[in-house]
C-alpha cells in the first residue's frame, strides 16, 4: 500500500531537513581549506583547534558560562523559596506571584535587554555585566519556579511535620527532609536554566559592550565580517556541548521526568 512507502520517505526527508544541516556544519568545520565550503576541501582539525585560540571567543565563552552558571544559581536561589511558598502555603495573591514570575517566558528577550539598557544601564551607569546577569537570572527564573514547584507538589508535606515533631526546626526540616527529596527536580531546573541561558541571544543583544559579550553574540559579530569555518567549528562544538549535557541529564537523572 502507498502508506507503507509513504512513511519511510517522509521520515527520511524530515531527518535530512532537520538534522542534515547540522551534519553539514560538522563536515564544514573539519575542512582543511581557508573558506567556508561544503563539501570540505580536505579534512583537518585546524579550525576546531583555532577557535580555542581566539581570545575573543575564549572571553565570550567564559562570559556565557558565567551567566549560565551563576544566573541559574541566582534564579534557583530566588525560585526555590518562591516555589515552596506557592506549593506549601495558601499564599495571598498566589496567582499574581505566579504570573509575575512566569512573565519572562512570554515576553520576547530582546525587549528585556533593551529595557534594561535604557532604564538601568544608561541612566544609572549600571554595570553592563551586572545588567546582563540580572537579565539572565530573570530569564531563567520561570523555569526554576515551575520545575521545582512540580517536584514539591509531588512530595507530601507531612514528612516535614514529622521532622518538626521529632525536634527539627522548620528551616532544618527543609534541608534535612525536603531538599534531599527534590534534588532531582532542582538539578533538572539547573540544567534547563543553564542550556536556556547559554543559548540565549536576544536578551544579550543590547547588553553588549567592549569586553562584555556572550558567545552567541560574539559569533554573530564574527559572522558578519569573516567567512571562514571558525563559526562552523564553534557551532558544532556548542551543539555537542548542549546535546551532551542533555544526554547525560537524561541518562543519570531521567531529566524528561521533571520537565
Amino acid at each position: 500500500m502507498s502508506i507503507r512507502l509513504f512513511s519511510p520517505i517522509v521520515l527520511f526527508l524530515l531527518l535530512v531537513f532537520l538534522i542534515g544541516p547540522f551534519l553539514i556544519i560538522i563536515a564544514a568545520s573539519l575542512s582543511a581549506g581557508d573558506t567556508l565550503a561544503f563539501p570540505p576541501q580536505g579534512l583537518s582539525l585546524r579550525w576546531v583547534t583555532k577557535v580555542f585560540a581566539v581570545e575573543s571567543f575564549r572571553d565570550s565563552f567564559a562570559m556565557s558560562m558565567f551567566l549560565a552558571v551563576f544566573g541559574t544559581l541566582a534564579a534557583l536561589l530566588l525560585g526555590i523559596p518562591a516555589a515552596y511558598a506557592l506549593s506549601r502555603y495558601r499564599l495571598p495573591a498566589a496567582e499574581a506571584v505566579r504570573t509575575i514570575v512566569s512573565l519572562p517566558i512570554i515576553v520576547p528577550g530582546i525587549i528585556v535587554g533593551l529595557a534594561l539598557l535604557r532604564y538601568l544601564v544608561v541612566p544609572f551607569g549600571f554595570n553592563i555585566t551586572v545588567a546582563l546577569f540580572f537579565a539572565h537570572a530573570a530569564l531563567v527564573l520561570p523555569y526554576a519556579v515551575r520545575v521545582v514547584s512540580a517536584s514539591l507538589d509531588n512530595l507530601r508535606s507531612d514528612i516535614e511535620e514529622a521532622a518538626v515533631l521529632l525536634g527539627s526546626s522548620r528551616f532544618g526540616a527543609f534541608f534535612r527532609v525536603v531538599m534531599p527529596n527534590i534534588r532531582g527536580g532542582v538539578l533538572a531546573a539547573f540544567i534547563l536554566g543553564f542550556v536556556t541561558s547559554f543559548n540565549q541571544v536576544p536578551v544579550s543583544l543590547f547588553l553588549s559592550g567592549p569586553g562584555v559579550r556572550t558567545l552567541p553574540i560574539d559569533m554573530l559579530g564574527y559572522m558578519e565580517t569573516t567567512y571562514d569555518p571558525s563559526i562552523a567549528a564553534l557551532s558544532a562544538l556548542l551543539a555537542f556541548l548542549s546535546i551532551g549535557i542533555v544526554f547525560l541529564a537524561e541518562r543519570f537523572l531521567g531529566f524528561s521526568r521533571y520537565v
Binding site: 532537520l18 538534522i19 544541516p21 547540522f22 553539514i24 556544519i25 564544514a28 567556508l36 565550503a37 561544503f38 542550556v195 547559554f198 543559548n199 541571544v201 552567541p216 559569533m219 554573530l220 559572522m223 563559526i231 562552523a232 557551532s235 558544532a236 556548542l238 551543539a239 548542549s242 546535546i243 542533555v246
Partner: peptide
C-alpha cells in the same frame, strides 16, 4: 534534538 542546539548554530548551516 535540534531544539537543544543553539539557534545560531542551526541557522548558520543554511549559509553553507
Amino acid at each position: 534534538l535540534p531544539l537543544m542546539i543553539s539557534p545560531v548554530a542551526r541557522t548558520y548551516a543554511w549559509i553553507v
